Simulated scan of single mutants.
Amino acid sequence: MLNPQWLRSFIALVDTGSFTRAAERLALTQAAVSQHIAHLEEALGQLLIRRPRQIELTPAGRALLDYCGQLEGAERQLHARLSDAEADAGEVSLITPGSIGLALYPILLDLQQAHPGLVIRHRFAPDPEARDAVLQSSYELGLVTLKPDDPRLAFEPFIEEPLELIVPAGAQVAGWDDLSRLGFIGHPDGQAMATRLLSRWFPGNPGVRALPVHGFINQIGLILEPVARGLGFTVLPRHARLAFARQEAIRVVAGEASVVDQLWLIHRAEWPLSARAQRVVAQIRQVCTGNRA
């Protein structure tokens, strides 16, 4: 097992970029930090390329840095598991898709204000990243759109999230030509979402790729801004629309056939949720299920 002090010196060196600053951070001598790095390189191979005023990690150095991150995650999980009974204090970590994340984050902040001992760590991420983060114990809770099939994950239905066709408030959409006239506001999942919804509403349409594109934005909280300004239409999950501040400037087009995603709550199957995580889940479920308009 690698000496923890050697690893602390390595992390400090990577963070500061300097043997001198690393030594100051750790209250050690520069010679001690150099010796710790030399021990690591003796065990693992060259970790650093030393340049004037710059330190560059080798592939082995990057691998060691990843290993240090895994150790840190394991330590967080250990502290969380040792304090599972505390419902009002400690860290709650949650990783979710962006749409539902926009709805959840204010709820999480309200909960943290009511219980100042809680520390909320929330990240927006696509399904593969969320699943891997929970598997690696970087996050205790996750929400994903695809039902997991990994036996290491416990999962349960959390909430359904419909896709919505969203247009400027004054726009009328009676057919494909109206969408073509408005133009599409793209986003990273935009074409896939629009294809799923519009193929049901307008069978035989020439396809989303045939629509003129009037903009693209990769920040989910900003996707509806060009729609509100009359620059085009888009397709988003409902919670992304509900989180938009200027509801009066947009309109949801009604359709006969709905497309609904089931969101799944996941956590590691090997241990139960902490009391504080159970509190968070109960709170966000209550608010989300009561806010479906």
Rank of each mutant, 00 (worst) to 15 (best):
residue 291 N to A: 14
residue 14 V to A: 07
residue 253 V to Y: 04
residue 288 C to H: 01
residue 109 L to K: 13
residue 290 G to K: 10
residue 265 L to W: 09
residue 154 A to R: 14
residue 83 S to H: 14
residue 239 H to C: 02
residue 282 A to P: 03
residue 148 P to F: 07
residue 192 A to W: 08
residue 236 L to T: 05
residue 177 D to S: 13
residue 180 S to C: 07
residue 66 D to C: 01
residue 161 E to W: 02
residue 244 F to M: 04
residue 88 D to N: 12
residue 163 L to S: 10
residue 169 A to G: 06
residue 9 S to L: 03
residue 146 L to R: 13
residue 159 I to E: 13
residue 196 R to P: 00
residue 101 G to V: 10
residue 84 D to Y: 05
residue 129 E to M: 07
residue 184 F to T: 02
residue 245 A to D: 11
residue 166 I to E: 07
residue 115 H to D: 10
residue 252 V to Q: 12
residue 142 G to A: 11
residue 238 R to L: 13
residue 255 G to E: 05
residue 288 C to F: 01
residue 114 A to F: 01
residue 290 G to P: 06
residue 103 A to E: 12
residue 58 T to H: 10
residue 78 L to N: 05
residue 179 L to H: 10
residue 188 P to R: 11
residue 184 F to Y: 15
residue 9 S to T: 03
residue 46 Q to K: 14
residue 17 G to R: 09
residue 20 T to A: 12
residue 162 P to Q: 08
residue 241 R to G: 06
residue 123 R to L: 15
residue 196 R to F: 00
residue 23 A to V: 02
residue 256 E to T: 12
residue 266 I to V: 15
residue 269 A to L: 03
residue 21 R to M: 10
residue 73 G to F: 12
residue 260 V to I: 15
residue 200 R to Q: 14
residue 141 L to G: 07
residue 162 P to D: 09
residue 91 E to I: 11
residue 272 P to K: 12
residue 287 V to K: 11
residue 168 P to S: 12
residue 12 A to G: 02
residue 223 I to A: 09
residue 138 S to T: 04
residue 272 P to R: 11
residue 157 P to Y: 10
residue 66 D to F: 03
residue 96 T to S: 11
residue 83 S to L: 04
residue 82 L to I: 00
residue 182 L to Q: 06
residue 83 S to V: 01
residue 139 Y to C: 11
residue 192 A to P: 00
residue 133 A to C: 09
residue 204 G to I: 08
residue 130 A to I: 12
residue 47 L to S: 05
residue 248 E to Q: 15
residue 24 E to I: 01
residue 78 L to D: 03
residue 209 R to Q: 14
residue 92 V to K: 07
residue 145 T to G: 10
residue 71 L to A: 04
residue 37 I to A: 04
residue 215 G to F: 03
residue 219 Q to C: 01
residue 6 W to H: 15
residue 139 Y to K: 03
residue 254 A to C: 00
residue 65 L to N: 09
residue 26 L to K: 08
